[in-house]
Design a protein around this nucleic acid. Structure first.
Lengths: 193, 193
DNA sequence: CCTCGATGATTGAACGATCATTCAATGGAA
DNA sequence: TTCCATTGAATGATCGTTCAATCATCGAGG
């Protein structure tokens, strides 16, 4: 058994601290406007220490990104899809999606900011978005097969739902009454009968 | 009449060239990752010349932003709203919105990138988005009053439409068949009858 | 038509500041 | 004593911006 578990725990704690501080500052100011000295000052350490834990500034950036993979939460959400009526589930999915974006606001800001100039970041977002859309499309097609939704292009509907919730979050709009209205609009349409 | 119109025209042409080159590079790499020397090299001039036309790098940035105000195009679009049935107009509005975002892709990238770290840029976007949503809400309320749409929260519908089109553009999805499906979903809903 | 002074466009190295990263030295824990 | 965490100034590079000098254009006067 390793002989330095206390020391290793302390190192891990320091590493996590540096990631947390960097995430907060990157979210506030953007990566380029945040210097290694800014991060060191905010963490109360010397700039050189950062290079003990991370090869370079870019490695620190990716350590922040690696910290969170939302796919587990997304698939967990769909685990209970079968137990709820369509409207209830879509309300739940939209509300949980909105809430998750809120909890991960720092990370979202960093990710969107860097995606605009880092092709590898954009690629990573595209993969995740594709997976998210696929989960939703699978659910919608199941509901169509069960006769609960009319036959239609489930992918367009999935994109509408995700786009609408993302737009609420990006514009700083509150969840309600918008989410309920959006789901009702999506299910019933807005045309006069 | 001014005596140096040829010289003034040349100066204006140079100024426009610098703005165009800067816009392209800012869109590709982001503002911080684009140096004054990058812009000068791409324009084929010396770095000092940029300061003949712009007080500083930030002034050049705002000159790019000032170059375009989409509100004129947005209001022009609504000028013909009355002449079309609801579905036709909404298809037109969505298609034109998608196309405008495509034409202004460079500017959108710059604007979204800088909005994440410049409160004044975010504020400017918020105002514009508020105006756009207001135009759409006004139109939808008119259609509700005319009995063509059922009574509902027009703002939620406006946000759905804008969010859906924005998400198509951000994810690199093609306009069709999505726009037609989205408009039909929005009008008729996806619930089984 | 030519010359010359005025004016604005342009150059590109220098300047002061800041950056990311390195590293020899130090301190504390094992 | 060994090992790892930590320090913080130094290093080389790059940044935005300045500025004295140069070049090209323009208009007035002869």
């Amino acid at each position: 058994m390793t002989t330095s578990t206390k020391r290793e725990a302390q190192a891990q704690e320091r590493r996590n601290q540096l990631i947390d501080v960097a995430r907060r500052l990157f979210a506030e100011k953007g990566m380029e406007r945040t210097s290694i000295r800014d991060i060191a000052d905010a963490a109360g350490v010397a700039p050189g220490l950062i290079y003990h834990y991370f090869e370079n500034k870019d490695a620190l950036f990716w350590a922040i990104i690696e910290r969170h993979n939302p796919l587990a939460e997304m698939t967990a959400l769909f685990a209970q899809a079968e137990t709820l009526p369509v409207r209830e589930f879509m309300l739940l999915a939209a509300t949980r999606g909105y809430a998750l974006m809120g909890e991960r606001q720092d990370l979202l800001r960093i990710v969107f900011h860097e995606a605009l100039s880092r092709p590898e970041m954009l690629q990573r977002i595209r993969v995740l978005q594709q997976m998210g859309i696929a989960l939703l499309v699978g659910y919608l097609n199941g509901r169509i097969a069960a006769g609960e939704l009319r036959p239609h292009n489930a992918e367009a509907t999935a994109r509408m739902l995700v786009g609408s919730i993302l737009a609420l979050r990006l514009t700083g709009a509150p969840a309600e009454p918008y989410i309920t209205d959006i789901i009702d609009n999506l299910l019933c349409g807005v045309a006069a009968p």
